[in-house]
């Protein structure tokens, strides 16, 4: 067992964990964050995507001990005073989700994508989400959601939450 400390969604957590514990399972089982989802377990689908120090990672392929001393953000940590993050709002408005299982990972990947490429073209958005699979939407509305956020942050009014 190894003692680790990490900040998750703004709160510090200390835990004793087995070195083999996946960050995914640490967040879900030890910290009770049910908004991080297991999908493929082969680093393919991105349902488990969270931010590690502000960048998207697949938490099924990160050991909890590797996140020791780092900052983790999940879909539950991106709201601002109870107001949805613009990406959450945009997924809702653009109908960018159906069953919703891939959605938290897709939202976290999309936020990371726009942080790195704020003016990403449609093609760049599609490529930027290559590691997140959705079985319901056919992706068009997910791409539109990301574009909605781009439009909003380019001077248009923020949507009401």
């Amino acid at each position: 067992m190894r003692r680790i400390q990490m900040t998750v969604d703004g709160r510090a957590h200390v835990a004793e964990v087995e070195p083999r514990l996946l960050l995914l399972h640490h967040l879900r089982e030890n910290l009770g964050i049910g908004g991080v989802h297991a999908g493929c377990n082969t680093t393919s689908c991105g349902a488990c995507t969270v931010h590690l120090d502000g960048e998207s990672v697949k938490s099924c392929t990160v050991l909890a001990v590797q996140a020791d001393g780092h900052e983790v953000t999940t879909v539950r940590g991106i709201m601002d005073n109870g107001l949805w993050h613009p990406m959450q709002q945009a997924f809702h408005e653009a109908h960018g989700l159906q069953c919703g299982y891939c959605t938290p990972g897709m939202i976290m990947a999309s936020i990371s994508l726009l942080k790195e490429k704020p003016n990403a073209t449609e093609q760049e958005i599609r490529e930027g989400l290559e590691g997140n699979l959705c079985r319901c939407t056919g992706y068009e509305n997910i791409v539109k959601a990301v574009q909605l956020v781009q439009q909003h942050s380019n001077g248009q009014a923020q949507p009401a939450s």
């Binding site: 908004g35 879909v75 919703g100 299982y101 959605t103």
Partner: peptide
């Protein structure tokens, strides 16, 4: 009509079996 299902899903508060 915007979906009523979405709020729980986009905020990571859905009740999946594994939860």
């Amino acid at each position: 009509v915007p979906r009523k299902e979405d709020p729980a899903l986009v905020t990571g508060r859905a009740n999946w079996t594994d939860n």
